[in-house]
């Protein structure tokens, strides 16, 4: 295979596989946050910012994969 083809393949694999984990994790966080808000609607103001922060932390592994992908493609 040519270098360009391998690069495209590697980038696709990196982001595709790297997105699985954070996607599942963020789904779990969102569902738990919704559950908590449903159980106790008064604290939704406290839960929502916490949900965003934890989601951003979970997302970071996906972002690592993305950075690697971008470096493969444009670096």
């Amino acid at each position: 295979m040519e270098t360009e083809a391998v690069k495209a393949l590697a980038a696709g694999l990196a982001i595709g596989l790297g997105a699985i984990g954070p996607a599942i994790g963020e789904g779990i966080i969102a569902s738990k946050a919704m559950e908590a808000i449903g159980r106790n609607p008064e604290v939704s103001g406290k839960i929502t910012p916490l949900m965003f922060v934890t989601m951003a932390i979970t997302e970071s592994t996906g972002i690592y994969a993305l950075v690697i992908t971008l470096i493969i493609l444009f670096g």
Binding site: S60, I63, L66, V67
Partner: peptide
């Protein structure tokens, strides 16, 4: 982790 998170998000948004 701190730096990649911010950089990755903003750069990915641009791209």
């Amino acid at each position: 982790s701190l730096s990649f998170r911010l950089f990755g998000n903003i750069f990915a948004g641009e791209v």
